[in-house]
């Protein structure tokens, strides 16, 4: 346990509602290095509440880096400067006494701000609804071992499937592109034998929806991979491109 406290200046984006203008508000905090970034915001909010001021609206849930709810842009990095963790796993020992920290919401046309640091990421769900599934009714499944899946294939599918849907890839991309998210989702199912029957319908439907929702195109800058809390590889984007080209060349139009 560390008794030393860090004195920090926070510049936090405050925006009362979706249609109102926002601005940065400065806060001074003193925080234990063992505290997490979100616990620091909890403390700050408690302080604001006890002064009868509205707390800063931000989202989080599991606080162990798996639910994908949290997501702040901290000093320009989605989920902060430490690679491969979500905002909730960022601890204050990674900052220095006297630092100024800028906190912004994810910014993208497809992710409109709802309040302060909360954005609406339901566009990602719309993409999933368009085709991110295998059509199999409950009860109709064969035995789990009926179709053997090579260990490395299962493991590669798992790597793609470990995406937590936080939207940091969109937030990091200079084009607000959702290609890493969609790439991971398409890859997960395209790799598995169970995903084959709908392989080409799926990729076309998901890309079509992605384009409709106002995400940008991929410029292969790979910022998404660098900022992804789960380290999802851009190989998934390459696979998405491949699947898409193939589907357009040989499969029926969706």
């Amino acid at each position: 346990m560390n008794q030393r406290k860090l004195n920090l200046t926070l510049k936090i984006w405050r925006q009362p509602g979706p249609n109102s203008a926002g601005s940065f508000v400065e806060y001074k905090v003193s925080v234990s290095p063992d505290s997490s970034f979100l616990e620091m915001l909890d403390d700050l909010n408690n302080e604001l509440e006890s002064k009868n001021l509205e707390p800063i609206a931000f989202e989080s849930d599991c606080r162990e880096g798996i639910c994908g709810t949290c997501g702040l842009v901290i000093n320009g990095h989605p989920h902060g400067p430490i690679p491969k963790i979500a905002t909730c796993q960022l601890h204050m020992r990674n900052f220095k006494d006297g630092d100024t920290i800028w906190v912004e919401p994810f910014r993208a046309k497809a992710f409109p701000v709802i309040k302060d640091l909360i954005v609406d990421r339901s566009a990602l769900d719309r993409i999933m609804e368009a085709g991110g599934f295998i059509s199999v009714n409950t009860g109709s499944a064969p035995d789990g071992n009926a179709i053997p899946i090579p260990k490395d294939v299962a493991s590669e599918a798992m790597d793609s499937a470990s995406c937590i849907g936080c939207g940091a890839c969109v937030a990091a991309c200079k084009n607000s592109s959702a290609m890493l998210f969609v790439g991971a989702k398409v890859s997960h199912l395209a790799l598995l034998p169970q995903g084959q029957p709908e392989r080409y319908i799926r990729v076309q439907a998901m890309v079509k929806k992605m384009d409709e929702l106002g995400f940008g195109a991929c410029s292969n800058t790979y910022a998404c991979e660098a900022e992804c809390p789960k380290g999802i590889s851009i190989i998934n984007i390459a696979r998405l491109n491949r699947e898409y080209i193939k589907s357009k060349l040989i499969a029926d139009e969706v």
């Binding site: 599934f133 295998i134 199999v136 409950t138 009860g139 109709s140 499944a141 064969p142 035995d143 789990g144 071992n145 179709i147 053997p148 899946i149 090579p150 260990k151 299962a154 493991s155 599918a157 798992m158 499937a161 997960h188 199912l189 598995l192 169970q194 995903g195």
Partner: peptide
């Protein structure tokens, strides 16, 4: 047992052995 079958069919990437079995 049915749950495992259902999840596999839905594309849950359970860990596999080298022979491809769960």
């Amino acid at each position: 047992g049915n749950i495992i079958d259902q999840c596999v069919a839905l594309g849950v990437p359970f860990a596999r052995e080298y022979g491809g079995m769960l």
